[in-house]
Design a protein around this nucleic acid. Structure first.
Lengths: 231, 231
DNA sequence: ACCTGAACACCGTTCAAGT
DNA sequence: ACCTGAACACCGTTCAAGT
């Protein structure tokens, strides 16, 4: 959940030192929460959720395994921090003012989805994890936008969770069914072999040709149609 | 993915045997795929996803660990089979004929959701897993119903995945935020402590009072409104 | 304040062997 | 056809200790 305090450290560039001295040119920089989280994200990007191991993480950082535990409470903690770090919000894309609330909501959610697609392990980690500041920030932004658009207080939580589920679901599903072509072909093979049992999904090539971006956009439109303040 | 063949076995109740003989009264019955899967589900219900261990599973079955591997390819295989077994479809609830396609779809999805809520680990296993016959059967049923209702072929996959994401998302989210009261209070505490940063979600008590059933039903209605064949 | 190695109590799975 | 134990190559984390 909460990482340990990382006390005051790194008194870089004090005046009156050797002028030529390059800052930390040799060896690894010292351990820090930032470095641990950044390296964890690298490892997750490279090897997936199962690839993240405390020992491997320590190796990449050039430290002993147990050194990590001074900065971090547990492996769960590392997951929480990596997830939240990947969901940092950069703010609205342009200097362009949001024209209308609906465009604004779509923008917020598309940015969220794009962040998760950049790190395919992240969507599957979204449920069951403690919510970090960036995730809470995104929820707050979404919530404020919807509220400002006139969604009644009584409907606000329903609206937020519906949208959250849609973003998470469409990202997770896309990641899990975007297998290698071989795997997908094999899956459809198995399906075809018993096409008498599953004629409809075999005919629509559900496991082969699904349009993930379209699913996201259309589903989102339907939800927003429904959530739009009445009147 | 596919469990190993479990050859012909169990020639129960042949005629002309000792009439009083109780079938297998002493000791454990022999290992079988069915018994392995059923016990895995028990273990998952009791201990959650992390609680399922090949060694613990073997213990419960009264066998050696490696005996499992004759019936099963890997632990992944056990997960796939357990997940699919929990999603067996019992058919429509009553003798009542479906009045209209929309009611039928709602019924199919509510049954799906109910099955997963009975086994809180199942929703989180739904993504990333090979689709077993029961899951494929449910997809086929859903697909057929939508198709029969007039949803255009071009929209069919989008419709199925949107509904899949909604059912999975709402179940997974509910399970992960239905923590103990203590945990939930603590989460809201942390939120309250920085209520200046997250005023909206703090005010709406997003992490405390969310109405999961309402979210499911309302989100589903919006999706179905949107997916309904035009005209 | 920060880092370490040894040790503990586990994992999933390979393998060669038993019946 | 079905089951087994020993062994391998790992895990996350506790602990007592170093600087």
């Amino acid at each position: 959940m909460a990482a340990k305090r990382s006390g005051a450290q790194g008194k870089r560039s004090q005046p009156g030192e050797l002028p030529e001295a390059v800052p930390e040119p040799r060896g690894e920089p010292p351990l820090s929460l930032e470095r641990i989280v950044a390296t964890a994200v690298e490892l997750l990007d490279a090897q997936g959720v199962d690839g993240l191991t405390m020992r491997r993480l320590a190796d990449r950082l050039g430290s002993g395994v147990m050194s990590l535990y001074w900065h971090v409470d547990s492996k769960e903690d590392v997951f929480d921090l990596a997830l939240d770090s990947v969901l940092e919000y950069g703010g609205p894309p342009q200097a362009c003012e949001p024209q209308d609330w609906r465009e604004e909501v779509v923008g917020v959610l598309e940015d969220w989805r794009a962040s998760m697609l950049r790190h395919p392990w992240s969507a599957s980690l979204l449920p069951r994890r403690a919510l970090g500041p960036n995730i809470l920030g995104r929820l707050e932004l979404l919530s404020k936008t919807l509220s400002g658009a006139g969604v009644a207080d009584a409907d606000l939580n329903v609206a937020i969770w519906s949208l959250w589920n849609h973003v998470m679901g469409s990202t997770v599903t896309r990641a899990s069914f975007e297998l290698s072509d071989d795997d997908r072909a094999a899956a459809q093979q198995r399906l075809a072999r018993r096409s008498e049992r599953y004629p409809t999904i075999e005919r629509s090539r559900l496991l082969l040709d699904s349009d993930w971006d379209g699913t996201f956009r259309k589903g989102l439109d339907f939800l927003l149609d429904g959530l739009a303040p009445r009147g």
